Amino acid sequence: MSWMDDGGFEMQAFTAQDGRPMARMVFCTSTGQTYFTLTKTEVQRVRRECGRILKEMEETK
């Protein structure tokens, strides 16, 4: 199993106090947990970059 399957990575959507949609990204490592709070725009940027990297990886097969 990968570290993602073992719960080493998690994302959760939530609503900020001012009503904006937000996401919490958590990375769990042997040294502890690191939390990132992302806006909807930041999540969209991460998604776009992941798509770009996946496309690049497919081209190099």
Score class of each variant (00 low, 15 high):
M1Q: 10
S2W: 11
S2V: 11
S2K: 09
S2N: 11
W3M: 15
M4H: 13
M4Q: 15
D5V: 12
D5T: 07
D5I: 14
D5S: 10
D6V: 15
D6I: 13
G7R: 00
F9D: 01
F9W: 13
F9R: 03
E10Y: 00
E10W: 03
E10M: 02
E10F: 02
M11W: 00
M11T: 01
M11F: 00
M11L: 03
A13Q: 04
A13V: 07
A13R: 04
A13P: 00
F14L: 02
F14C: 00
T15G: 11
T15I: 07
T15L: 13
A16Y: 02
Q17M: 08
Q17P: 05
G19H: 01
R20S: 14
R20N: 12
R20G: 12
R20T: 08
P21R: 04
P21T: 02
P21Y: 09
P21A: 04
P21C: 03
P21K: 06
P21F: 05
M22W: 01
M22V: 01
A23I: 00
A23H: 01
A23M: 03
R24S: 04
R24A: 06
R24V: 00
V26I: 09
F27P: 00
T29H: 07
S30C: 06
S30I: 03
T31W: 04
G32I: 11
Q33M: 13
Q33N: 11
T34M: 03
T34Y: 00
Y35E: 10
Y35S: 13
Y35C: 08
F36D: 12
F36C: 08
T37Q: 14
T37K: 06
L38S: 03
L38N: 02
T39L: 14
K40T: 12
K40R: 09
K40Q: 14
T41S: 15
E42Q: 15
V43P: 09
V43L: 11
Q44S: 10
Q44K: 09
R45D: 11
R45Q: 11
V46I: 15
V46W: 05
V46D: 07
R47L: 07
R48K: 09
R48V: 07
R48Q: 07
E49F: 15
E49M: 15
E49P: 00
C50T: 05
C50W: 09
R52S: 15
R52Q: 12
I53K: 12
I53Y: 13
I53G: 09
I53E: 12
L54F: 11
K55D: 14
M57F: 15
E58S: 11
E58G: 06
E59D: 05
T60F: 04
T60V: 08
